[in-house]
Computed example of a mutant assay.
Amino acid sequence: MPLPRKKENKGLPARWRFKHGAYYYQVPIGLEAQWDGKQLFRLGKSLPESYRTWADRLSTLDDAKNIAELLDRYALQVVPTKSITTQAQNSVAIKRLRAVLGAVPLQSLKPRHVYQYIDKRQAKVAARREVEVLSHAYTKAVEWGYLDRHPFKGEVRLDGEKPRTRYVEDWEIIECLSIESRRKAGSVLAIQAYIRVKLLTGMRRGDLLRLTMSDLKDDGIHVTPGKTENSTGKRLIIEWSDELREAVSIAKSARPVQIAPWLFCTLRGECYFDEETGRAGGWDSMWRNFMSKVLETTKLKEKFTEHDLRAKCASDAETLEHARALLAHADGKITERVYRRKPERVKPLR
C-alpha cells in the first residue's frame, strides 16, 4: 500500500519519501529483487548521498517526458561530478524546480515560464541559481537527444548580481593579526594563521581546511582543488617562499592537537570540513566570533568575509595571469570580474 504523501516530500523524485531523518525509495511492486528484497529502500541521510545510492541502483533513463524526469537524470549523472558543496546546492535547487515545474512537458517550457518562475519567488538570488541549474539540465537534454535546441538559452535576460567590491586593506589585516589570544592554540591563533596562509595562496576555504600534513612536500603545497577534482582533475603545486613557510609554521604551532593529520583541526584533531555536506559549521562559527572581536577591539568599522581574503590575494597579485593561476580558474574572465578588486591605475597623457 503506497505511503501517504507528506508535505515535506514535495519536490522529491517520484516514489521518494523522507521519514525518521532519512530518504527512502518506495520500490515498485515486482522490482523488490533489484532493491535487496525491500519494499522501502533506505537511500541515505542527505540528498547528495541519496542521489548517489539511487544512481548506483537505477539504470540510465532512456527518455524523459517532463522536466521532473530530466532533472532525475541530471541528478543521477551530472550532479555527482561536481564538488561536494555544489552537489548540495544543486540538490536543493532540483527539489524546488521539481515542485514547481516537474509536471511540465519537456518541450513545453518557454522563456516566459522562466521569467514567471523568478517573478513569483521572493528569494530572487536563489531563484536565479535554480534557473542556472535548469538551463544546464536543458543543455544536457540537447546532448542526450531529448531536444533539438535549448528552449531559453540566449533568450532570457536576467539582471545579474553585481560582483562584491569589498577590498581588504593591508592595515585591516594588521589589525586582525594584532589581537592577542587567551589560548596557546586554536581559536584566535588558528584564524590568524589561516588568514596568513590564505593571503599567500588564495586557496578556497574547503581546500585550505582539508589540507593535510602530507600535502606539505619539499617542493611546495600540493593541492587538488575540490571544485575541479571530479571534472578536470587539475592539480596545483604552490611553491614555497620564505613568507609561506613562516605562515605554515605558525599554522602548525596553532593546532590544538599536534599529531592531527590536518593543518587546521578541531579540538579533537578532526577536520573542520564535512565531506558529506560540504559545510564547515564549526569553522564558520569561529570565524564569526573572531570578526565580532575584531570589530569590538580594533579600528575596523566594517567586517569582511573569509571569501574577501581570496579576492585580496587575487587583487594583490602583480598580473591577472598570476591571480588566475593562484585561484585555479580555467578562465581569467571570472578572476578579472569578481576577484580583482583594486582600482586600475592609469597614467595620464603627456
Rank of each mutant, 00 (worst) to 15 (best):
G206S: 08
K299R: 13
E243T: 12
A323Q: 05
A22C: 11
Y117W: 14
I94V: 15
P256N: 03
V104M: 09
K252D: 07
V104R: 04
K82Q: 15
T212G: 00
D215S: 10
T201C: 01
H136G: 06
E49M: 11
S292Y: 06
W262I: 13
L211P: 08
R15W: 01
K6V: 01
R235N: 11
K7F: 04
S91L: 09
L263S: 07
A311V: 07
I84R: 13
R42V: 09
G282W: 05
R255D: 05
A88C: 08
Q87I: 07
R337Y: 08
S231A: 06
T266V: 08
V294N: 02
Q89K: 15
V188N: 05
A323D: 05
D274G: 09
H322Q: 14
R96W: 10
Q89F: 13
S249W: 10
W262K: 12
E155G: 13
E175A: 15
P4L: 03
S181D: 05
V92E: 10
K110D: 01
R350K: 14
S231D: 02
I221Y: 01
R245V: 05
R15E: 04
L134Q: 00
G206Y: 00
I94S: 06
W144I: 07
G154R: 12
Q34V: 11
A314I: 01
L101R: 00
L147A: 11
E180Q: 15
I334C: 05
L97N: 11
P13R: 01
M213D: 09
K303G: 15
E143M: 10
K19M: 09
E169C: 04
L97C: 12
V156S: 08
A93W: 01
S135F: 03
A330E: 13
L326F: 06
D56M: 12
A93E: 05
Q77T: 15
R210G: 07
H307T: 04
K19Q: 10
A33T: 07
Y146T: 09
A280Y: 08
I259D: 15
P4Q: 06
K342G: 09
K293G: 08
N90M: 12
A254H: 02
G145S: 12
P105W: 03
